[in-house]
Design a protein around this nucleic acid. Sequence first.
DNA 1: GTGGGTGCAAATACTTTGCAACCGA
DNA 2: TCGGTTGCAAAGTATTTGCACCCAC
Lengths: 129, 129
Amino acid sequence: MAVLKYSRQREAIKNYLQGREDHPSADMVYDGIRGEFPNISLGTVYRNLSLLTELGEIIKIPTEGADRFDARVAPHNHFICKSCGRVMDIMISVKNPVEEINAQWYGGEVEECRMEFYGICNECKKMKN
Amino acid sequence: MAVLKYSRQREAIKNYLQGREDHPSADMVYDGIRGEFPNISLGTVYRNLSLLTELGEIIKIPTEGADRFDARVAPHNHFICKSCGRVMDIMISVKNPVEEINAQWYGGEVEECRMEFYGICNECKKMKN
DNA sequence: GTGGGTGCAAATACTTTGCAACCGA
DNA sequence: TCGGTTGCAAAGTATTTGCACCCAC
């Protein structure tokens, strides 16, 4: 791609993501920054999220339904609620098995491991009672 | 849901999945069984894949682009090629960290862990040379 | 001034759904 | 027969893209 040029919209999208604990979808980012940029378009949000993902400044997480985005790029793992779809960081570290996998598996070279833990979140458990 | 009734299409879809090493999308399943059922519709394929997923007879794997489906329901992990999108089983077992997570994390109760390993598959490496 | 970025709308990709006909129990 | 299932097409959701205008450099 050509030389990157500054854009206030891209800056705002990245800031918005960095200020969130959850993992918003493109649509949620769009809603979230319309206060600051009332005329921004959803296309611009998608374009910048893709660009930031390519640059490695954010991470894209495919889930059921819309993709989620995460400004925390350091390796970490996620909990995904089977009931409400919420995506949460799991902050505790478990041993990363990448070296183990590469030592034993020949389908390709593994660069990264993402663990996804599925279950029912506490919010949804409360609702059931 | 009401009582399940037998359907040749559903049977064929499940058989098709069980006979594959890869993890086809709905569209690939559709193409794959049109030989046997020339009049089957894509809607029927989607309906049955959803139903089988709910029944726990297959697994749905969200990825970039279309969802993939897997008839191997026993816990196992996947390698996803960043270049071609191919999804492959990683057959070697690494320790499942679910108990470790549940012992230390209070966001919810974890039932299942899926590890996704990202990298470049051997096929794509060959292409580059 | 040049070329990347934006807003807008149309297009595409993926998936679900309403409905009448069909078929398994 | 009864009600779940199918094929078809239309609708719905998620995402990408073409284009004229705008703005950073």
